[in-house]
Amino acid sequence: MTDSLIFVSQAVLLILGCLFFAVGTLGLFRFSDTLTRIHALTKVDNLGLGFIVLALLPLAPSLAGGLKTLLIWAAALAASATSAHLIARAVHVRPEPPNAGEVEHD
């Protein structure tokens, strides 16, 4: 009984996670400027990752394994927040980077 309950909640969490990742990708296409796209990537994708992590927790082989899963999640959250801030700052400080023309190819 408990096993099937856990299985069903894992399935729901995994599907929710997938949906949020899909919406995050959609955000990259629908939002037109870099800063708004960062909003989509940071918030939606982190929620997706949170659901996936929750779904994977019951599969952890041991207490240490579960803690490791949570640590990876925390590291990914911190990484995402830091990256979002740094790219946003780069866009703010240099709206048009000096070598933008060289990178263009289309």
Partner: peptide, 27 residues
Amino acid sequence: RIWRGPAPADRMLASQLFGTTGVALLM
């Protein structure tokens, strides 16, 4: 989307993308 750019900052979003989607995929 990342490949289409156009600004380098847009392309750097790929790194953030791998930091979340890539991590979820690997886990």
